[in-house]
Every structure is written in structure tokens, then in C-alpha cells.
Simulated scan of single mutants.
Amino acid sequence: MSKVKGLCIMDVDGTLILEEVIDLLGREVGREEEIAQITSRAMRGELNFERSLRDRVSLLEGLPISVFDKVFKSIQLTPNAQKFISILQKNGILVGLVSGGFTPIVDKLAKSLGITYFSANQLEVKDGLLTGELVGAIISPELKQATLEQWRKELKLPRERTVAIGDGANDLLMLKSSGLGIAFCAKEVLRKEIPHHVDKRDFLEVLPLIDFLE
């Protein structure tokens, strides 16, 4: 790639893909409804993100890691996500994924889309089973924002050449600190604070908002 002209950071669950992976994992352990209710409240900003994530992950204890292959096959990209990403990449805009979801899924998604910059939560595994614990730093709202800043500085880009796209309360800080924050089919808490919204679930609707595309 020639010189990077911009950076576009995307949330994964509910933005790049239609599903919330943790809810799909909950289905595998028979706790989907319980987990989905917590997810929904966290995304609306009603619960502390990190605490709610730890609570949900604890319910996944005992799941085999092979479950990620099954879940990966069931997730669907948001319409035109692949096309959107390849248009940005062809225009010298680096695409990165920052997810409050989990590395085994985000890693596969990133590779399938030709994305090298990504960050997600790590689940602890012992003897091939999830322990119900997380390891390492939690991808909190603050860390999403810090990751955007870190990648921007590594790429030596000015703030106005950064785009952030997300749908939940945990994306707010990241969207606010980018040059262009886009609330994508977003929860009310995000729509109130972020002036740019896309309300149709189609990534081609985002392209006209990015003013540094060739």
C-alpha cells in the first residue's frame, strides 16, 4: 500500500456484523436470553461495560473453544461491509477493528477482510474449555478511544483523517475523539451525542460522509 491517507476504525458486534457474538455464545450454553438482556442494557449505556462483560463471560464457563468455529459460521456481515472496506483500502484508508467481543472471532473476521489492525478481548482457556474469565486488558470505552489515538499516531495521521463507526454506548468516546464519528444504526445514547448518523443498515450509506475519499 502507498502512504496511508486515513484511518477508519469500526466496532464489530452490531456494526460490522449483524449479531452480538456473546449472545450467540450464550445460546450454546443455554443462557442466551439472560446474556442478551445484559448486552442490550450495556449497549444502551445502562450498565458499566466492564462489569457487565465480566458477568456475561462468567456464564460461558465450560464451553469448549471449538464453539468459536460454529459461531463464526453463523455470523453475517452487515450489507455491503466487504465492499465498503475494500473501497477504503483501495483509497489508501487503513481499516481497523476495535471490539468489545472476542479475539477468536475478530481475528478470523479481520483475516477474511484483509485487515491487519484489530483489538478484542481475550478469553481465558484451560484444557480446551472457557474458564468464564477474561485475561489481559478489557476493551473498555476508554481503551477503544486510546486504541484509535495509538493507531492514529503510529500512522502519523491528523485527527481529521480518522473515522470511527459504532452502534453502542461503549463506542461513544471513540466516536467523539475521531475526526468523523458515525453512529451506525445506533442506540439512542449514541444518536443524542453524535451528529452524523446512518440509520439504514448498509455500509454504502457511510461512503458519502467521508470527505477525504478520492
Rank of each mutant, 00 (worst) to 15 (best):
S2C: 03
G6W: 01
G6L: 07
I9K: 01
D11A: 06
V12A: 12
V12I: 05
G14Y: 00
T15M: 13
L16D: 14
L16I: 06
I17L: 13
L18V: 02
V21K: 07
D23V: 02
R27D: 12
R27L: 10
E28F: 02
R31D: 04
E32C: 06
I35N: 08
Q37R: 14
T39F: 04
S40V: 05
A42P: 00
A42F: 08
M43Q: 13
R44C: 10
R44K: 15
R44P: 02
G45R: 12
G45Q: 07
E46R: 12
N48I: 03
N48T: 04
F49E: 04
F49L: 07
E50L: 04
R51S: 11
D55Y: 00
S58D: 06
L60Q: 01
G62M: 10
G62P: 06
L63A: 07
L63Q: 00
I65E: 15
V67H: 09
F68H: 14
V71I: 15
I75D: 00
Q76F: 08
T78V: 11
Q82P: 05
I85V: 15
Q89T: 02
K90A: 12
N91A: 15
N91V: 08
G92K: 03
G92D: 11
I93T: 06
V95T: 14
G96M: 05
V98E: 00
V98W: 00
S99Q: 08
G100K: 02
G100F: 03
P104I: 00
I105D: 10
V106T: 15
D107C: 07
K108I: 00
K111G: 01
Y117L: 11
F118M: 03
F118Y: 13
S119L: 15
A120W: 11
Q122A: 03
L123I: 11
L123D: 01
D127W: 02
G128N: 10
G128F: 02
L129F: 14
G132F: 00
E133T: 11
V135R: 13
G136I: 12
I138P: 05
S140P: 11
P141W: 03
P141C: 09
E142I: 08
A146N: 14
A146R: 14
A146K: 15
T147L: 15
R152P: 10
K153E: 15
K153P: 01
E154L: 13
E154G: 05
T162V: 08
A169F: 00
N170M: 04
D171N: 10
L173K: 15
L175S: 06
L175H: 06
K176T: 02
S177N: 14
S178Q: 05
S178G: 04
A183N: 09
A183C: 04
F184L: 08
C185S: 12
A186Q: 09
L190C: 07
L190Y: 14
R191Q: 13
K192L: 09
K192E: 14
I194Q: 00
P195I: 10
P195T: 07
H196S: 09
H196A: 02
V198S: 04
K200E: 13
L204R: 07
E205L: 11
E205D: 08
P208A: 13
